[in-house]
Design a protein around this nucleic acid. Sequence first.
DNA 1: CGTTAAATATGATACCCATCATGTAAATGT
DNA 2: ACATTTACATGATGGGTATCATATTTAACG
Lengths: 187, 187
Amino acid sequence: MKVSREQMAENRRRILDVASRLFRDKGFDAVSVAEVMKAAGLTHGGFYGHFSSKDDLIAQTLAHVLAADSSGGGDLRAYADAYLSPRHRDNAAGGCPTAGLVADIRHQTPAARSAMTEGLRSQIDRIGKALPELDPADRRRAAIGCWAAMVGAVILARAIDDPALSDEVLEQTRAWIDTGISQVSAR
Amino acid sequence: MKVSREQMAENRRRILDVASRLFRDKGFDAVSVAEVMKAAGLTHGGFYGHFSSKDDLIAQTLAHVLAADSSGGGDLRAYADAYLSPRHRDNAAGGCPTAGLVADIRHQTPAARSAMTEGLRSQIDRIGKALPELDPADRRRAAIGCWAAMVGAVILARAIDDPALSDEVLEQTRAWIDTGISQVSAR
DNA sequence: CGTTAAATATGATACCCATCATGTAAATGT
DNA sequence: ACATTTACATGATGGGTATCATATTTAACG
């Protein structure tokens, strides 16, 4: 049955939201089109009215979720604390899309890679802006280094099945970043 | 046709080697059992004589490739240079199994997670041993922080479709690690 | 209000893949 | 040498999934 314009727009938004959670939780491959539609409260049939293919859904979901993510702009230490928390590690579905999805991007279409690239570009810029006390070269280096360590640590922590080691990876990475920033600032 | 004991052992080794390359290159899901067997010069039929399932192959491949990997033991700076090189970024199939496969581990069986955890444990220890000038607490922190940043940077660099930004992520992470280690050492 | 167009539902279709069943030939042990 | 075992090949089978075809309902527009 046909629905109103706004209803359709809302359906589309819900599909993207739901897809973003499912993809972060289970990975692109493990989520079927029908599963996404069902989670959005629809059936699989309407899917191709919204998207031209599953690859298209993936690319649009990435653009959607990365555009919505504006985290990391304020206090870098507080951001790193939350990012490197067990809570974030255990909440992939609702957590950072980069941590959940970057590694898979290399097997996706050019459109998906492009969306991720733009997301990373602005995230690095945002982190840089959170380090105003550094001169530009140090700032850029610290932003990229911190971000690589944060993303890497969450990915590692999620892979490790020993809770103690997993917690330690998060905690030590947080400490490592902390000393790294402090020392460059104090130089 | 039956083959000799040694021939069978060699076949098994070849399957694991080939699977490890294919998995690193394309991801676990994108590689079929038949594809692995074909790449090993066999047909799909013999597969279940060697492994009880594809999940079993994945777990055994991880144990195989992580046990074989003893990199990072010597000079940490040289190791980071090679690790964070465009060459390594562009050679996922032959590169570090952690960088290529960790992120997928969280969707795999307990056996696979366990194999990866042990691999990470010894890798962190190896990197720690490459930092003898630090006291134990600093050493542990630096080993984990460096490793998270290295793995994270390669994963990010492989996702980014802009060569300039991708190179920059590698290069700046290298510099960030470098200053991090130097400053802790000089303290 | 009636006509039309569009959004979604229901129901194929076709393909890929993990796994299994059976055949075959060669290695192993006596 | 012979019997037996066994590693691998060939050829199903079954389930899952992306995508398409058609039907249905109702919003949109005159």
